[in-house]
């Protein structure tokens, strides 16, 4: 990747983060004039967790999307199309509403477990080196089944508000997430992501085929299992806090590979950067877009996942 691309991505991340922290600026300046301590609390308790989650979740989607595309040797593999996002949502819902798990870290673990099961079923159904159509069909089937299961669990949950939760959370949202939730999602996701990045060279070699990979000294099946497991942990932790978000995990690796001349392993880090910028930008658009001509308020509550799904 060229030096210019690195600088461009770094500048993009910095700009997205800065804008996410200060916008809408009107309310921030007004608060700072009235009470500087309150303005700092606004940034620290609300905007900073939201910014970290948008950047981090976007980076996870980009990075795991690139890793899954390299593993499955298929440019259409992504956390949402392979069903791992839906599986993570199912795991988190089962844990929260039926097992009574309320701690953010424990919920993240439930999400990771759900994603892992979904990816395991995908490999069992489609195989690792399946054709595009087979992978798509299997992934869509798993995603639909997991979504149906999630809706059923929410509809049968003791609290009648559980079904309302599905609209906002399952569509993907960063609204009103606190720092404990951000840490519960991003700490395990970061650890899993770092371990994935360490396998970047092996993923580059994977493109040459399993025989070549094995001759170099890697174990193809073990590498595939590790990538799937780490992706499930990273995606599952984020989905349990912010819900399922589509599109980013598909498009970020595509753009990243253009920057690294098609090397799937080298695309991991750029895909993470692009994913973070994309998702943070989508969240910014959500916050700043007017809603039905009504007066503007402090923050918008429209789910960020809708923006990503529409590809805008």
């Amino acid at each position: 990747m060229s030096r210019r691309s690195v600088l461009l991505l770094a500048a993009g991340i910095a700009l997205a983060a800065a804008l996410s922290l200060v916008l809408p600026i009107g309310s921030l300046l007004e608060t700072r004039r009235a009470d500087p301590g309150l303005a700092w609390m606004l940034i620290q308790e609300l905007r900073l967790p939201r910014t970290l989650l948008a950047l981090g979740y976007g980076a996870v989607l980009g990075l795991t999307g690139a890793a899954l595309q390299a593993t499955f040797a298929n440019p259409l593999a992504s956390p949402d199309i392979t069903g791992s996002s839906s599986g993570a949502a199912l795991g988190a819902v089962a844990g929260a509403y039926w097992l009574g798990i309320s701690g953010p870290l424990a919920l993240a673990a439930c999400g990771a477990l759900g994603a892992l099961v979904a990816l395991a079923v995908l490999i069992a159904l489609a195989g690792r080196r399946s054709e595009t159509a087979t992978l798509l069909l299997a992934g869509v089937a798993i995603a639909l089944a997991a979504s149906a299961g999630t809706s059923l669990l929410l509809a049968l949950a003791p609290s009648p508000f559980a079904f309302y939760d599905s609209f906002e959370w399952l569509m993907g949202s960063f609204v009103d997430r606190g720092m404990p939730q951000a840490l519960a999602a991003l700490v395990p996701a970061s650890i899993a992501s770092i371990l994935l990045v360490r396998r970047a060279q092996a993923l580059d070699m994977m493109a040459l085929g399993d025989d070549v990979l094995a001759s170099i000294g890697y174990r193809p099946r073990r590498l595939a299992v590790e990538v799937v497991t780490l992706s499930a942990i990273a995606v599952g932790a984020c989905v349990s806090v912010c819900g399922a978000i589509a599109f980013v995990g598909l498009i970020a690796p595509f753009l990243a590979r253009a920057m690294v001349r098609g090397h799937p392993g080298r695309a991991l880090v750029p895909a993470a950067a692009i994913g973070g910028i994309l998702l943070t930008s989508a969240d910014l658009l959500v916050r700043l877009a007017p809603a039905g001509g009504r007066s503007r308020l402090v923050s918008s509550r429209r789910p960020s996942g809708l923006r990503c799904l529409s590809g805008s």
Partner: peptide, 26 residues
């Protein structure tokens, strides 16, 4: 939003306790 409650709190908050004992994200 939480931001509104933090930055421009109302004089009175009328809070519903309906099903407060059952878990939901709400």
């Amino acid at each position: 939003s939480l931001e509104t409650i933090l930055v421009r709190p109302p004089a009175v908050l009328v809070q519903s306790r309906y099903r407060s004992g059952q878990f939901s994200r709400g």
